[in-house]
Nucleic acid binder design. Sequence first.
DNA 1: ACCATATATTCGATATTCCATATATACGGA
DNA 2: TCCGTATATATGGAATATCGAATATATGGT
Lengths: 114, 114
Amino acid sequence: MNPVAFYKCLADDTRLRSLLLIAREGELCVCELMEALKQSQPKISRHLAQLRQCELLSDRRQGQWVFYSLNPSLPDWASQVLGMTLTQNPAFITENTEALARMQSRPVRDRQCC
Amino acid sequence: MNPVAFYKCLADDTRLRSLLLIAREGELCVCELMEALKQSQPKISRHLAQLRQCELLSDRRQGQWVFYSLNPSLPDWASQVLGMTLTQNPAFITENTEALARMQSRPVRDRQCC
DNA sequence: ACCATATATTCGATATTCCATATATACGGA
DNA sequence: TCCGTATATATGGAATATCGAATATATGGT
């Protein structure tokens, strides 16, 4: 994993928020991120595709939904960077309010998405 | 420190290498970075200016030379990200060879630069 | 005052990134 | 098979980033 390529992935608001939300929740689908970040479907999808292509994210299709999670073979330092960014910048993620609170109250397994 | 702004600073080859070299050496001047990275003077200077404006670097003039070092008031998570990137990606910095080896053999205080 | 060295800045050209819109594909249910 | 929902991709334009070349500024020595 080239460090510069990695940081390019984190250098966009939508991408970084998506990554940190996914890191926190374990797994999220496109429509959940759309709602959480209040962004259009193509925009979310495009950024997720980029993160998958750079091998930061893995995807798993379940019915009509595609769930994204952190790539398990992500280098250690990269996971640690994400983890530290998440825990030491709680405000960055908590800026979006109701959607995220609702999201947390539902276990992933039971969600019917959008 | 906005995480996205921070990662934008790391999302360029010249900037990231400069930051990591400065983190490792403690303090470096423009001409040392020019030699280490084999890049033009305006290019190095421009990127350092950007890192200073984003408050990742501090500068100190000593005679005709300007020495750059990590901003001491850098948030903890940001320093840790830099430190982890440095220690867990030794190859990224060691790609440039002779110039860096020579640099390490001279203590900062005694250097006459270029 | 003049010159040499180190560093900063400006300017125009090029490259890259980001987005909205439109369209395509995949899946499940009726 | 047809429809609705979820997701992906293609296209073109706007905004931004990066660069090389030229120029400006600062410092120290003669």
